[in-house]
Design a protein around this nucleic acid. Structure first.
Lengths: 298, 298
DNA sequence: CGCACTAATTGTCCAGGACAAAAGGAGGTT
DNA sequence: AACCTCCTTTTGTCCTGGACAATTAGTGCG
């Protein structure tokens, strides 16, 4: 009956596929094949939008569009992740499965309580490294494999964010260096930033959290205004890797030479370090960098 | 020397103006007028990007592109907000100016302390209504008028978010109704959601916070999975008003009939209520709606 | 098996036309 | 002056179809 349809902008919004891509796929592969309204504009029916979402998810796992777009829905549903073929289960992950289960049961209260317990037991540093970080990865994998819904992932992010923020707020204010924490436009993953902030504040760093998605110009201005010693950016694994070097280089040129530029997060793991930028693929690297900075300034 | 240039995608990212708009402006008004690289693609110099940012801000204040695009930079800088011509200063706002001043001095610690004091003095309910809400509006105005930088606004959001979340987390868990709180894609303003959450949790509502930007399909799924009684959406004043009715109607159709749909925030003030949706332009309306819901169920 | 080189794939950009929705303006009525 | 209606202009978004560079896959050779 209702037979809702979406215009191309709505599909772009819901699937994350740009208008250009939607049109060129239609031209090349014959899918999607939207109807047209009186004005000749594309009207995508719900089924096609859902199929596009599925295709998008499979592509994020390393499949290629040419193969996927010819396939019927059933075949798509049976495809498994390609990129990370072998993924062994560490004991730590087995331990975390309990938390995942709570999320999948939509038990917000239970999840919060379990998280709080782990925080109390492990202390903030180990909590970040041994609970939040691997949990984030597990959720990412579950999401890639379609075992997690969008809203389950959102709930995870929201509740975990809250606990981390709360933990950070109980710590005493740092004494230096002054470190500005943010991410570039289109990078909205916030958990990485919060994890680093927690570790740094524990070490007495004075963090200035600016949230995510700060235009490059404004990062430079903020660094100057706050008299920051260091600017630290976070790139998640989901961020388009080829954009990163350019962004870092551009920011490095805009930023005063006296201010250091650090970049961390899963997106920086397989990256050759640009000039004047320090890469911190893991937490240990971040703490090392901090120790070195302090040694240099003392 | 460096003479950085931006390709059209970078300009879209930095200015928020779509590629289509950038090209059609160039065609119609002769600005921007980017150079071309060896491949015939547009290369926007820094000055033009900055001018575009300025134009964008003036447009958000109600100016129209046809007038702005012919003007030189000096003239642009002298333009004042148009939409809210007369804006009188209430005494309450004068009181809040102190907080604004702290933000403009980039004194994060001082701002947090001042906010915390106000929270302790006013209690959460009045803090939300008399401090956070008007402060958010003031920051919005200051931002529109160019008196606030992007990063100052981000800092405000980040710090205020933290305090509200912290305050919410100290409250006891609610007993019902179960209320799902989120926003639609492209609506990323989170403070409104947090303010409502604080007020509702104070009233014993069991809030399920899903963060911002949830696709409509997933909102419906989440509501079912969480067995929510009510779905509440927040629309900021900055959200394109014409999209709201369509979105609400579409969601209403997807959502099971037994689940109520509420929509609030500054974006819903001048809106005729769609069928099956309850509009809550202000906090009082939200509390009224809650009282009525409870009366109906008792 | 590793490496260089060719071929296919795929995303993004371009030009320029079209149209509908929104905003502005004109004119008449209360 | 405020309000409504009708008409005009402005403005954003969508369209087609072509092009090309960057990535990925495939192939042959040392």
């Amino acid at each position: 009956m209702s037979s809702l349809t979406f215009n191309i902008a709505a599909v772009e919004r819901d699937t994350g596929l740009s208008k250009d891509v939607l049109r060129v796929w239609e031209r090349r592969y014959g899918f999607p094949s939207p109807e047209r309204d009186a004005n000749g504009e594309r009207c995508y029916p719900t089924e096609q939008v859902e199929r596009l979402c599925l295709i998008k998810r499979l592509m994020d796992q390393g499949h290629r569009p040419g193969k996927l777009l010819g396939l019927p829905v059933d075949a798509l549903n049976q495809l498994t992740p390609r990129r990370h073929a072998a993924r062994e289960r560490t004991p730590a992950q087995a331990d975390l499965a309990e938390l995942l289960a709570l999320l999948r049961q939509h038990d917000a209260v239970g999840y919060q309580r379990a998280l709080q317990q782990r925080l109390a037991r492990q202390g903030l540093q180990r909590f970040v490294q041994d609970t939040v970080a691997p949990l984030t990865e597990l959720v990412g994998v579950a999401w890639e494999e379609g075992r997690f819904e969008v809203f389950e992932e959102h709930l995870f992010t929201e509740l975990t964010k809250r606990l981390l923020r709360q933990a950070i707020s109980t710590l005493p204010a740092g004494r230096g260096p002054r470190l500005l924490l943010t991410s570039v436009p289109n990078e909205e993953h916030v958990l990485g930033l919060l994890m680093v902030e927690a570790l740094f504040v524990l070490e007495g760093v004075e963090c200035i959290p600016l949230g995510t998605q700060m235009p490059l110009h404004d990062i430079a201005r903020a660094a100057a205004a706050h008299a920051a010693d260091i600017v630290a950016l976070s790139f998640s694994v989901a961020f388009p890797p080829r954009q990163i070097p350019g962004l870092l280089q551009q920011l490095r040129q805009t930023l005063p030479a006296g201010i250091e530029l650090w970049a961390g997060g899963g997106g920086t793991v397989r990256l050759s370090p640009p000039a004047g930028v320090r890469l911190l693929p893991g937490f240990a690297d971040a703490l090392d960098a901090l120790a070195e900075w302090r040694a240099r300034r003392s």
